[in-house]
Design a protein around this nucleic acid. Sequence first.
DNA 1: GATGAATGAGGCTTCATTCAT
DNA 2: CATGAATGAAGCCTCATTCAT
Lengths: 213, 213, 213, 213
Amino acid sequence: MPTATWERLPAARRDAIVAAAEAEFAAKGFSRGSLNVIAREAGVAKGSLFQYFDDKLGLFAYLSELASLRIGAAMAKHSAPLPWADDFFGAFTAMLTAWVGHFRNHPADLALTAAVNLELDPDTRVAVREVVNRHYLRSLRRTIDHGVQVGALRADADLDACLALLLLVLSHLALAANMPGLDPVLGLDTDPDQAVERVVAVFRAAFGTPEVT
Amino acid sequence: MPTATWERLPAARRDAIVAAAEAEFAAKGFSRGSLNVIAREAGVAKGSLFQYFDDKLGLFAYLSELASLRIGAAMAKHSAPLPWADDFFGAFTAMLTAWVGHFRNHPADLALTAAVNLELDPDTRVAVREVVNRHYLRSLRRTIDHGVQVGALRADADLDACLALLLLVLSHLALAANMPGLDPVLGLDTDPDQAVERVVAVFRAAFGTPEVT
Amino acid sequence: MPTATWERLPAARRDAIVAAAEAEFAAKGFSRGSLNVIAREAGVAKGSLFQYFDDKLGLFAYLSELASLRIGAAMAKHSAPLPWADDFFGAFTAMLTAWVGHFRNHPADLALTAAVNLELDPDTRVAVREVVNRHYLRSLRRTIDHGVQVGALRADADLDACLALLLLVLSHLALAANMPGLDPVLGLDTDPDQAVERVVAVFRAAFGTPEVT
Amino acid sequence: MPTATWERLPAARRDAIVAAAEAEFAAKGFSRGSLNVIAREAGVAKGSLFQYFDDKLGLFAYLSELASLRIGAAMAKHSAPLPWADDFFGAFTAMLTAWVGHFRNHPADLALTAAVNLELDPDTRVAVREVVNRHYLRSLRRTIDHGVQVGALRADADLDACLALLLLVLSHLALAANMPGLDPVLGLDTDPDQAVERVVAVFRAAFGTPEVT
DNA sequence: GATGAATGAGGCTTCATTCAT
DNA sequence: CATGAATGAAGCCTCATTCAT
């Protein structure tokens, strides 16, 4: 989505723009985020932004993809050493905890995820979510398949429903654990670890194989 | 939130304003909805709006509360004749189907719910959601309690988690079933009834009492 | 084309805007004329212009119509006392001389006529010319009919061609007599009266009844 | 008007620039034509254009001269075989028909002529028209002289007026026959051949020698 | 001689809010 | 209490031109 010019830019300039844009969209969302502010904060002429991206949406989509790549990489790294085969739900819990933690430690990723999920304009939302969700879906589906293989998830469960709910819950966890006012029940913003455990327990009850007592 | 002046207004004038404002926010969302348009469509002077509400947000919050009252009332009516005692999950399914249908038939309610859930600006979102969620939580908690009493839900299940997930899922159902691009897996926008059944099945598996075969 | 608000405006304010807009469009034409400049010169907020006219084109079209009404009225006044019946071509010459003189004395009318005729953007040009030409065509056709009735113009001449050429020549006379660089032959900008006489002679030769010697 | 650098350029590079510039100005006109687009389409750096021409106007004026040379050459070729001596007005009609046809078949020439004739900015217009008109005037004057010699035009007619009107009519024919909205009477855009005939008839009546019946 | 990134003024338009009437 | 004209900052985007490489 960025232009060829963008690729040829000095890294410092690119970084300044990305940082400014992330901060602005994080604070205001896409529709209300201002290119004026971004250019000013980045120390760049207003017109320059349009040499790097076709338009406002182009810049935002680029940031969103950056963030989802970053998130995907972080999750992959967290996931690798986990004992998925031996303790699937334990690993899953650790994974979700890491997920929540990632967003706490990377406000830009949180903000962009929020901006994507909370965008009201339908066209914009569809355009951006499509790109972003693709990553998550692929990864989640792999995790679910794995859970079935190791016998943690029932093969006859409604795994698509599981996937859909996971996608929904993941978004919610990321946001609700780090933004006030989104979760009035579980207390995600005060004790996220416990909240994660309770959510995993629900998934285990719904889709897991019966536990041997 | 409305001023004292608003209460003293002829009902016809109030209704015209509410109708115009709902239509506008439904079409454009909160941020992009225009008070100019609302005033014109309502046949009211622009300045008058500011005699009834502190500002744009005040008007919007008022509409949101109206909508949630309306939705609550509709749900209560739907709920009353359902066989909660005899077939809790059947009643629950019918309830969710009615819920989804309500938003399909009341675009204004859908739009306002969307605007509330998708608003990025933290202050706005918190202010509005707080009011709205209160209604839903009370009602949902009653439903859950009832499910326990009739033996459909396990008393030892994590009922708060159930509540939190319900709240999340309800919002999602209302929006995803009626706006494209929000649910890439379950196909809520093409076959909502089936999607509802699958979601209920998940809740039954997670929180329901074991079925006697 | 102006909004209702415009009609209710104090005359002084309206006049200031009209004067500023005419001056700007006169100097720069429609496409390059700047609403910024107009608002500043008129001592009016930029946004106010959009309370009076839908957009830039709306303002321009309004000015064009004003000008063509003004021109039409002036011509009607000039025309009335002329001896059309006794000396059609003499009256016609006097008419054209008055026409040229009008634009010399009313630079705003000249400028708007120029702006209309010289606008490059096809949609704009069509939109505006349609309004303006209607006036001229009706009036010119009446004059031609009259010329036939009094026996000055041959009834079997190609009167539509006469009309088309008249329209073309009138525009040209108005502009070329008052803007340098448009007429490199007849010297319209230096001795317009003589040029007018020569043009009328051409029309007489082409469409007039043979003179009795 | 081009710089010395331009003359030294490989022909291929010059041709690419000319082609791109003609296409762009043809599509957008002078004021709205974009050097960005021209440079991109020509496969040339934006900055290079400024090494070949002083500025945007310089490039445009150069193209205009090119076009008028091209048009002049085409007309000369069309003119040569025509029976000017035997049937002056027949040849003249054929000539004008060819003229109109040329612009239909060469949109770039049409567009440049339009851009020249419709440019409002006085300095620009004068600068460009001067160059262009010189060609036409010389050629038209020769045609008129010839008409007199072969006895088709009256020697005592106002031949300068004829010349001035011809110049005016030629421009009009070229544009009005190929752009909508310029000729509301003769129907030049729907049946140009017939319109041409009618115009020639007017000139014959005004300046031609009486026909022997 | 060629490049193309950077500029920054300027383009039109929208809109919540104020305040004199 | 209603009105609606006025505001002016802010919105996104375009573009001819410059200049360091």
